[in-house]
């Protein structure tokens, strides 16, 4: 190897100034562009939670359970109470009416105590937002398998682009998608009757995005690390369908955790989905509770930090086989 030709090579190399930001932007831009050019997938992804939300949220009319109409016609006989002034008769119809009114009040209070809000739809619509954040990040993480199969990943690896940019582009793409889908679901939920709390401001929306961002980053990092060596879609797919259900149900997505059996509560209490859902609920439909929010965000922040570190270390190690 003569110094002359190495010098020439170095000259050519000097012109290349691969930077993390540049590579990250280029790769993320590619992903987002791909995504926007596939509106069918976009609609499909929104459609599924929309169906869940519309059908499940509306059919599980839990507040309806406690409505006066649901008590039906109760027949209460007239009650006669003997007093010193003679017998006083209270008509049964009056009692029944009173009871129905009380039942409705009790129902509202049960709803408030259980769900924090008076209607189940608002409660579960927020859960739906979490669900879409979870599924979107999982599937997006898997797109690295496609890049591997199509040879795109190998080509990118053979360029001097920062290795971190390759992984972060995937993470960012998954997270942006999740944020977008979440926005769509929130907007649709609002149109379908989501009741915002009186303390809701547009600033809360930023909090919602921050929470989604943290969970999205953590979850997608795990999925990218998980699928980085695969050349087949089957295994990650299987894994996703395996863990989606437990993550969804062993959390406060559809039902409050406090009414679950202890063992399930234990799972729900470490399930990051619980914290995301709780954070979004507190920011949208529930009255503001700063200390609870801080705890939610701390957990989500830790989750993102730990899992992203693990994900990136694994991805780094296995990017080059």
């Amino acid at each position: 190897m003569s110094t002359a030709s190495q010098a020439r090579a170095t000259n050519a190399a000097n012109e290349c100034r691969p930077s993390l930001a540049r590579g990250l932007w280029a790769l993320t831009y590619r992903e987002l562009k791909k995504w926007l050019k596939d509106p069918v997938m976009l609609i499909m992804f929104v459609l599924q939670p929309l169906i869940w939300m519309g059908l499940l949220g509306k059919s599980m009319n839990i507040q309806g359970l406690f409505s006066s109409g649901n008590l039906g016609n109760i027949e209460i006989p007239n009650i006669t109470i003997p007093t010193v002034y003679g017998n006083v008769t209270i008509p049964g119809t009056l009692l029944a009416k009173q009871l129905q009114q009380e039942f409705s009040k009790i129902g509202t209070s049960v709803m408030q105590n259980t769900f924090g809000v008076a209607d189940y739809f608002s409660f579960m619509a927020v859960g739906m937002v979490s669900m879409i954040v979870m599924t979107t990040t999982m599937f997006s993480g898997m797109s690295i398998v496609w890049d591997r199969r199509l040879g795109f990943l190998d080509k990118v690896i053979s360029t001097p682009v920062s290795r971190a940019a390759i992984i972060f582009a995937k993470i960012l793409n998954a997270t942006f998608r999740a944020m977008f889908q979440a926005s769509v679901i929130l907007a649709l939920a609002y149109l379908l009757g989501l009741q915002l709390s009186s303390s809701f401001t547009l600033l809360n929306l930023l909090g919602v995005y921050a929470a989604i961002f943290l969970l999205g980053v953590g979850l997608s990092a795990v999925f990218i690390a998980f699928s980085i060596r695969s050349t087949r879609m089957e295994r990650p797919m299987q894994f996703i369908s395996l863990i989606t259900m437990p993550l969804m149900f062993a959390s406060n997505t559809f039902f409050p955790t406090k009414l679950m059996p202890d063992w399930m509560q234990a799972i729900a209490n470490v399930n990051p989905l619980t914290y995301l859902t709780d954070a979004i609920r507190r920011l949208t439909i529930l009255p503001l509770d700063a200390s609870a929010l801080i705890w939610d965000f701390t957990y989500l922040g830790l989750f993102a930090a730990v899992l992203t570190s693990i994900g990136i270390v694994l991805a780094w190690r296995y990017l080059t086989r």
């Binding site: 012109e15 290349c16 100034r17 691969p18 590579g23 932007w25 280029a26 360029t159 682009v161």
Partner: peptide
């Protein structure tokens, strides 16, 4: 896109 990866 390729140029960006090389940082040209």
């Amino acid at each position: 896109l390729c140029a960006d990866l090389y940082g040209i």
